[in-house]
Nucleic acid binder design. Structure first.
Ligand SMILES: [Mn+2]
Ligand SMILES: [Mn+2]
Ligand SMILES: [Zn+2]
Ligand SMILES: [Zn+2]
Lengths: 132, 132
DNA sequence: TTAAACAGTGAAAATGGTTGTCAATAACAA
DNA sequence: TTGTTATTGACAACCATTTTCACTGTTTAA
């Protein structure tokens, strides 16, 4: 099963790979694999919560390892609307984490939601893109 | 030009409409319009910042009026991963707004980004979906 | 006024990431 | 063995979005 292979690829990078990116990398050490299986495996990994699926607006899904024992630390994204460059940032202000928890609790109560996750992204222009 | 028609449709709902949803509604009062023009107009409205484009993972882009003079108030999203239901919430805790600004400033400085916007979504299960 | 350049538009075709189908093979059970 | 079930990859189908292009109405320049 390519489950391990896909997880290995994802654990080796900070990038946000597309299904085809992953396919190509797995293919190097596991040439028998098909793109279909990569999609299938990713789907399953996303469903069991080991992998996150994102859409940054470039027409293809992007994946990264979910946080956890083997996963990267939890982080948020800084997205450049000019060139698409994405920064993973984890240096949260202390208050940020505290407030996030507080906000989740408030929303849970008010709207009767069992909140399990959040997505936080800031959009703007990186230094390079600003200079043009 | 269908610009007005599209904006009218979007200003009449709290929902997050797809391009085709919008097409069908505009079509009622403006039967000559084509789907291509809807896409073109949406693209342009997104570029000039009058409309926001989202992806909630159902395979099609979703649109809503950006905040502003004629727009809705700024809000964040609560997304049910069970049924896809989306809540627009605007009752921010006071601190939330303050901290958001502070965080933006910190990030701007640290990563040299000119931040113009943010996307904040909480994921979970709504009451109905929790009961199954 | 006229004619050429231009901008806006919709129908239809093309694109391309993703999903579905299906036959082949592997793993397992009786 | 032998039948059953699970896994897999090649290929076809899908479908939201984009591209192409002919057609129209509008502006511009002589
Ligand atoms: Mn990331
Ligand atoms: Mn909304
Ligand atoms: Zn950039
Ligand atoms: Zn639900």
């Amino acid at each position: 099963m390519g489950r391990e292979a896909v997880l290995d690829v994802l654990s080796l990078t900070e990038d946000h790979l597309s299904a085809e990116d992953i396919y190509m990398r797995v293919h190097e050490t596991y040439p028998a694999i098909g793109l279909t299986s990569i999609y299938r495996t990713l789907d399953m990994l996303v469903n069991i919560g080991l992998v996150y699926k994102f859409d940054f607006g470039d027409g293809r899904a992007r994946f990264e390892l979910a946080e956890g024992p083997k996963g990267k630390d939890h982080h948020h994204h800084l997205v450049c609307t000019g060139c698409g460059h994405i920064v993973n940032y984890r240096d949260f202000i202390d208050e940020e984490v505290a407030l996030l928890k507080k906000t989740e609790e408030g929303l849970s109560k008010k709207y009767n939601f069992a909140i399990t996750n959040h997505l936080i992204q800031f959009y703007g222009l990186c230094e390079t893109c600003r200079k043009k």
